[in-house]
């Protein structure tokens, strides 16, 4: 994937007027999340990590976002969303059941644990889950496609896109209080926003981003 905002780092604004104390505290805490499980047992943790790597394949050569740990903490706190499709059990139970069912499917298909499968095979299983083609007693009436959409994709992606590294990737401005934005029109950028690399002018964008 091309680096569209070379040199841009939301965190470089940490000590500017774009961040208030509340944002600093919240983001600091998020960056301090340790990459180990509190809620899941070892087996489920390995499965979850393998899933996260497929849902969000993180580029090499960059600090790794501990997505699985962020999902794990949501469950450890049982922090819910405020609604639940009636066909799904509460989130902790859904995750436990879904991960076990995926393991069972991997075993049945290839005789190995999900995290030991080749990535193509992992993707194939996940796609089957997404399309509702997985079933079996382990699912216990929980529709696989719903589990994929409402838990797997929902929780993993919400975790990743709450991390500053993902904001750098998409050129999002990140925290913005007390200072918001001034230049609102097309193709206008405040000096404290990410500069996008235009073909042939990558160096200029990097320069702007590193001197933010």
């Amino acid at each position: 994937m091309p680096d569209r905002y070379p040199g841009y780092d939301v965190l470089s604004k940490r000590n500017t007027a774009s961040w208030n104390d509340a944002s600093r505290q919240v983001i600091d805490a998020r960056l301090a999340i340790v990459d180990s499980p509190e809620f899941f047992d070892e087996r489920k943790w390995r499965t979850l990590r393998a899933i996260c790597d497929r849902i969000v394949p993180q580029p090499a050569g960059r600090a790794v976002v501990p997505i699985a740990a962020m999902v794990d903490r949501k469950l450890a706190d049982d922090h819910r969303d405020g609604y639940r499709d009636a066909r799904l059990p509460p989130q902790r139970e859904a995750w436990r059941r879904g991960l076990a069912a995926l393991e069972a499917a991997a075993q049945a298909r290839a005789g190995v644990a999900f995290h030991r499968l080749m990535t193509v095979a992992q993707d194939a299983l996940l796609r089957d889950m997404q399309c509702g083609r997985l079933d079996g007693p382990e699912w216990d009436d929980m529709p696989a496609d719903l589990f994929f959409r409402e838990r797997v994709a929902h929780d993993i992606l919400a975790a990743y896109y709450s991390h500053p590294v993902s904001w750098n990737e998409i050129g999002f401005g990140g925290p913005a209080s007390p200072r918001g934005y001034v230049r609102m029109y097309f193709n206008r950028r405040d000096p404290w926003e990410a500069a996008e690399a235009k073909a042939g002018h990558e160096a200029a964008a990097r320069d702007a981003n590193e001197n933010m």
């Binding site: 994937m1 497929r54 969000v56 993707d123 996940l126 997404q130 896109y161 993902s166 990737e169 998409i170």
Partner: peptide, 13 residues
């Protein structure tokens, strides 16, 4: 999800 999603997300701006 996967690469397809990440690429799509890069169009954010």
């Amino acid at each position: 999800w996967g690469e397809a999603l990440l690429r799509e997300m890069q169009q954010y701006n």
